[in-house]
């Protein structure tokens, strides 16, 4: 598998770095001098002043590299769908946390007293996860990378079984069990449960017996703990 960049990709990388550095420097300059115009600091804390522009610029830069293949080389045909899935999960997790915070009434405000507050960083991170997920998903669809994952009917069946087990656990946790675990924790545990099997499927190695045994062992242990503890 070749993972070096060709001259076109290197040119795109250099262009991306230059533009990102320019945008970062300009946005930091504007953000730190905004008080000259609005007569008070724009960001509530110093960490936000650096954090928000940095998250947005770095996220934008990685999305750009993914879009032009200058970061994830097209040879990594299995990595792109995997990363799209990972960023998608991160997006869902972060979005879920923001919504549940908002419903319980302790979400951080985005704007208060004429200043950007902690909530702006939450939105910046959400935007970055969204940009990365969409960029990689569109790229994978355009380049037909989804098919190269090699997902068979058996895999779909296993996935359906995993989903069924998750639903059963959620029902048990809500109605039968004495200890009520939050839905998010159960879902996260279920993702952790299947992760070794998914990663093992992506590896191009021939001798998989022992890793497979260990992955299934981990899966069974987690399923047992989720259902009965």
């Amino acid at each position: 598998m070749r993972q070096t960049f060709d001259e076109r990709q290197q040119q795109l990388q250099h262009r991306g770095y230059t533009v990102a550095f320019g945008v970062l420097a300009t946005s930091l300059l504007l953000a730190s001098n905004a008080e000259l115009f609005i007569l008070h600091p724009l960001f509530a804390t110093q960490a936000l002043l650096v954090g928000v522009p940095l998250v947005l610029v770095i996220g934008g830069l990685i999305s750009y590299f993914a879009a032009v293949d200058a970061y994830l080389t097209p040879q990594l045909t299995r990595t792109m769908p995997m990363l799209a899935g990972f960023f998608g999960l991160a997006l869902i997790d972060h979005g879920y946390e923001m919504v549940s915070d908002w419903r319980q009434g302790f979400s951080d405000p985005v704007w208060a007293h004429g200043q950007l507050q902690q909530g702006s960083l939450d939105w910046a991170v959400l935007l970055v996860w969204l940009a990365l997920t969409l960029t990689l998903a569109i790229k994978c669809t355009r380049e037909h990378y989804w098919h190269r994952l090699g997902i068979t009917r058996l895999h779909w069946l296993m996935l359906a079984g995993w989903g069924g087990l998750l639903v059963l656990t959620l029902w048990v946790r809500a109605n039968v069990a004495t200890v009520h675990t939050p839905v998010r924790t159960t879902v996260e545990n279920y993702v952790l449960m299947i992760l070794p099997l998914v990663m093992l499927h992506q590896l191009d190695q021939t001798h998989k017996r022992w890793p497979l045994v260990l992955s299934w062992g981990w899966f069974s242990l987690m399923a047992y703990l989720q259902l009965f503890h």
């Binding site: 060709d6 001259e7 076109r8 990709q9 293949d69 080389t73 097209p74």
Partner: peptide, 10 residues
């Protein structure tokens, strides 16, 4: 020639 397919396409 040691480049990506996308480069040839471009």
């Amino acid at each position: 020639i040691g480049v990506t397919r996308q480069t040839i396409g471009a």
